[in-house]
Computed example of a mutant assay.
Amino acid sequence: MEGYLLVLALAALPAAGNFLGGLASEAFRVSGNGLGVALHAAAGVVLAVVGLELMPEALASSTPWVPIVAFVGGGGFFLALDKVIGYVQARFAPDGQSGPWAIFSGVSLDLFSDGVMIGTGTVVNPALGLLLAAGQVPADIPEGFAAVATLRRAGVSRSRRLALAAAFAIPILIGATLGYFALRSAPELVTLSVLALTGGALTAVVIEEMVPEAHTASRENGEEDTEEPRLNALALVAGFALFAAISAYLGE
Rank of each mutant, 00 (worst) to 15 (best):
S218Y: 00
G129E: 11
D95K: 12
L162H: 08
G200C: 06
A204H: 14
L35M: 14
V124Q: 12
L20M: 08
E213F: 10
P171Y: 11
S62K: 09
L234N: 00
L111W: 11
R152I: 10
G144S: 11
N221P: 04
A80Q: 10
V107H: 04
T150A: 15
L234F: 07
R184F: 03
F112S: 08
S98T: 03
A60N: 14
V190T: 15
L162C: 02
F71W: 12
G74D: 15
A201S: 11
V206L: 04
L109C: 12
E224T: 04
A245L: 15
R161K: 08
G34M: 06
F19L: 13
T191V: 15
G155M: 04
A248Q: 05
V156H: 07
N18A: 09
W101K: 01
S185L: 01
S31H: 02
I174T: 00
G129I: 14
A196W: 08
E223L: 09
I85Y: 13
W101Y: 06
A58E: 04
L202S: 06
V46M: 12
F28K: 07
L195K: 09
G155N: 05
V45W: 06
L23R: 03
I118H: 13
L39S: 03
Q136Y: 05
A102H: 02
R158Y: 09
F77I: 14
A43N: 09
A15S: 04
L20I: 14
L5Y: 14
A182C: 11
V72G: 03
S247I: 00
A70K: 02
L250V: 06
A238G: 02
P212Y: 12
V50P: 03
F19E: 01
L6F: 10
T203I: 06
G96S: 07
A43L: 11
V194F: 07
G34A: 11
G17I: 09
L128I: 03
V72Q: 01
V123N: 08
P56L: 05
S157A: 14
D82T: 07
V88D: 07
P64M: 13
L5R: 10
A12E: 04
P142R: 06
V72N: 00
Q97C: 07
M1A: 13
F19N: 03
L23H: 00
E252F: 00
I103F: 12
V237N: 04
A238V: 10
G3K: 08
W101A: 09
F145D: 08
V194E: 02
L47R: 07
V194R: 02
P229A: 06
L132G: 00
A214R: 08
F243Y: 14
V45A: 13
A238F: 05
V156Y: 03
L52C: 10
M55P: 05
E26F: 05
A127N: 13
G74H: 09
R152W: 04
G75L: 12
M1V: 11
E188A: 15
Y4A: 13
A182H: 06
A233P: 00
G200D: 14
A146Q: 07
G119C: 11
L128N: 00
V190S: 13
N33T: 10
L81K: 11
V148H: 07
E227G: 04
A127R: 15
A93Y: 10
P56R: 02
V69L: 14
E143L: 05
I118V: 15
